[in-house]
Nucleic acid binder design. Structure first.
Lengths: 336, 336
DNA sequence: TTGAAAGCGCTAACAA
DNA sequence: TTGTTAGCGCTTTCAA
C-alpha cells in the first residue's frame, strides 16, 4: 500500500519554506510572495502533491460536500435533474454525495450524510420526515426539497407551479371538446400529485364538469398500467385522461393502444406532466406540462449557497412557472 | 452558526470515560465492556453525537468513499447502472461521490476525487485517459471501467460480451431472412461500439454477406436520427438495421416510422443493444441485446472491495454474457 | 510576507 | 477492558 503520502510538509522541505507557506500557496487570497508561491507550486507538482480535502474540511469546517438523495431513477425526470444539479454544483466548487434510498431507510442515510459533514442536502424524490428535517435544522444544515413541498417544514422547497399546471391541463382538455375526462393520480401523499390534482379539479368545477373517472397509479409504470385498465374497462370509457406524470402516461398509452386497440388521440386524448425527454419521442409524442428544470436547479443551488454563507436556515419556498407543451397525444382545441 | 459541535470528548465527559473509550464504543469489534458501551451510547444519543466521518477517514486512512463518474444521463442505461451500483455500494458501507463530466474536464475532476481520498473509482461512461489511469495506479486507487475496455490500461474493466452480442444480432437478422442489413455505429472510439461492430461483421462475413450500409450515430439521439436519414435516403433501402445501442435505436425508429412512413418490422427490422427499460415499452417494443447489469454491478463492487483490501491494483478484466431479447421490432426467423 | 505553534475530531499503539 | 499519548494533514492565529 502506498497512499497519497505526499504531504504539505514534504513540499515545504523541497521548496525550503514552512509547511504553512505551502498551505497558503494553495489557498486563494492568502498572502504569499509571487515567487515563493511559484517555487512551492513547482515543488508540489514535482512531488505530485495534492492537498487533502478531508484535512482541509476538518480544520476549516467547510467540507464543500452536498448530499443528493433520490429514490428511483427509472423516471427520467430524476436523472435529468441529477445531471443538471451535479454540473451546477461542480461549477460552484461543491462535490456531490449521492444517496439512493427508499423512504424506509432514510434515517440511516441521513445519519451518514451528516457524518460526512455535508454542507447541504437536496432531497430529489423522497421527502424528509419532519423529525429528520428538524435534526438538520438544529445542525444548521440547509435542506432543499426538490419538486416537493411539505407545509410546516423548516426545509426549503423548490417546485414548479403544480396547481397552475393542473389547471392548464383541464383548460386544454375542456377547450378540446372532451366531455368525459379521467384522472390518474400518482402517489397520493406527494405534494406534486396533490397540487396537480387540485388545479385540475378546480377548473373542472369552474366549468361545472365532474371528473369522469379516477384511479391511482402511484407514480409507477405498473401502477399506471393497472389504473388505465381499470378506467377503460367498461363500455363507457373516458374520452381523455390526465395522467399525473409522463412516466405513467407512457404506460397508459401502451395499455390504450396495445391492449385496448384505442387510438391516441382519435379515441382518447392523453396528457402527462414533466416533459421528460421521452415525451418528445415520436413513439409517444406526448402532450404534457413542462417544469422548468433549469430554473428549478438554479434556484436550488442559489438557496443552498445562500444559506451556507448566511449560516442561517430559514426555509424558503420557490415556485417556478409551469407551461403547457402541446404535442400529438391529445386532441387540439378546435378553431371554435 | 452552530456546527455539529458535539464531539467524542463531550460524550466522554458526560459518560465519565476517556475519549478513546467513546471512539471504541463506535467501532465494531473494539474491546469495550457491554455496560460501558451502553452508558456511552446513552450519553451520545442524549447529546446528539455523531462520529465525524472526515476525522475518522483521516486517521484511519479509510475514507469509505467511492467516486462514480458518468458523462450523460439521457441514455437510460446509465441511471439504471447508477441506481444499482449505488445501492450495492451503500450496502457495503461505502458512500458515492458523483461526478458528471465530459471527457474534456476529466483531469480536474479526477484531481478532485483524489483530493477527497476516494478509495476507488468507477468510470461509468467516460474512459480514463492513460495518463490519469497511471496516476491512480501510482496512488494505489483501484479504477474500474464500467462498460468500457481499454487494452493496455492498468485499470480493471467490466463489460458484457459485446463481440458475442454483435454476433447474436447478425445471426438473428440473417436467420430472419434479411438480405440488406445496415449498421449504425455509436461512438467509434468506444470499445462497446468496436466490439459490437466486430462481432456483427464477423458473422456477416462468415455468411458471405456484406453489410449493406453503414453510418455513425455517435451514441446520441440526434446523431442517430441523422444516420438513419442518410441510410434510408435512396430508393434502395436496407431491410434491416442493427443500431449500436437502444438509445439510438429509438431515434432510428422515430425517423423510419414518422418521417419515412416505413413500418417496423414489416418494411424494416430494427435491433438495438442494452435492453434499457424503454425497450420494453410497447411504443417501441424493441428487439435488443441484454447486458446483465446486475452481474456487471456485482463484479464491479467485487473488484473494488477486493483491491481495496488487497491494496494492490492489478487490472482485472471481467466479461459477462450477452443475451438476445426478442421483441417485436425485427422480423423473426421463420419456422424453417 | 513568513514561520512557529496550536489544534480540528478522531484512531491506534501502548501501558496500566 | 480501559486511559494515556501520539499523531493524521491541514488551516489559522500570532509574532517576527
Amino acid at each position: 500500500m502506498k497512499k497519497n503520502s505526499v504531504t504539505s510538509g514534504d513540499v515545504a522541505r523541497e521548496a525550503n519554506v514552512s509547511q504553512s507557506a505551502v498551505s497558503r500557496a494553495f489557498t486563494d487570497g492568502a498572502s504569499v510572495a509571487p515567487q515563493t508561491r511559484e517555487r512551492i507550486l513547482k515543488a508540489a507538482s514535482e512531488l505530485g502533491y495534492r492537498p487533502n480535502a478531508l484535512a482541509r474540511a476538518m480544520i476549516s469546517g467547510r467540507s464543500r460536500l452536498i448530499a443528493l438523495m433520490a429514490a428511483y431513477l427509472d423516471n427520467q425526470f430524476y436523472p435529468w435533474v441529477i445531471e443538471h444539479l451535479s454540473r451546477r454544483l461542480q461549477d460552484e466548487g461543491y462535490t456531490i454525495m449521492l444517496f439512493i434510498s427508499d423512504t424506509g431507510r432514510q434515517d440511516k442515510v441521513v445519519q451518514q450524510m451528516m457524518q460526512y459533514q455535508v454542507e447541504g442536502i437536496v432531497m430529489a424524490s423522497a421527502t424528509l420526515s419532519s423529525t429528520l428535517a428538524r435534526t438538520c435544522e438544529k445542525s444548521g444544515i440547509p435542506v432543499v426539497l426538490f419538486n416537493r413541498f411539505v407545509p410546516s417544514s423548516p426545509a426549503s422547497s423548490v417546485t414548479s407551479d403544480n396547481v397552475e399546471g393542473g389547471r392548464l391541463v383541464a383548460d386544454f382538455l375542456i377547450a378540446g371538446g372532451h366531455r368525459k375526462i379521467a384522472f390518474i393520480a400518482g402517489d397520493e401523499d406527494a405534494s406534486t400529485n396533490r397540487d396537480r390534482e387540485t388545479g385540475f379539479y378546480q377548473v373542472m368545477a369552474e366549468h361545472n364538469m365532474a371528473v369522469y373517472n379516477r384511479a391511482v397509479g402511484g407514480y409507477t409504470f405498473e401502477g399506471a398500467s393497472a389504473a388505465a385498465r381499470l378506467l377503460f374497462a367498461g363500455q363507457e370509457r373516458p374520452d381523455a385522461v390526465f395522467v399525473a406524470n409522463d412516466h405513467m402516461a407512457f404506460a397508459v398509452m401502451d395499455v390504450l393502444r396495445d391492449e385496448l386497440s384505442l387510438r391516441v388521440p382519435e379515441d382518447v386524448s392523453v396528457v402527462g406532466y414533466d416533459d421528460v425527454p421521452e415525451s418528445a419521442w415520436k413513439g409517444y409524442n406526448l402532450t404534457t406540462v413542462s417544469q422548468s428544470v433549469d430554473r428549478m436547479v438554479d434556484a436550488t443551488v442559489g438557496i443552498l449557497i445562500d444559506q451556507i454563507h448566511q449560516e442561517s436556515v430559514s426555509g424558503q419556498t420557490v415556485v417556478m412557472p409551469a407551461e403547457m407543451v402541446v404535442r400529438g397525444s391529445a386532441r387540439l382545441p378546435g378553431p371554435r
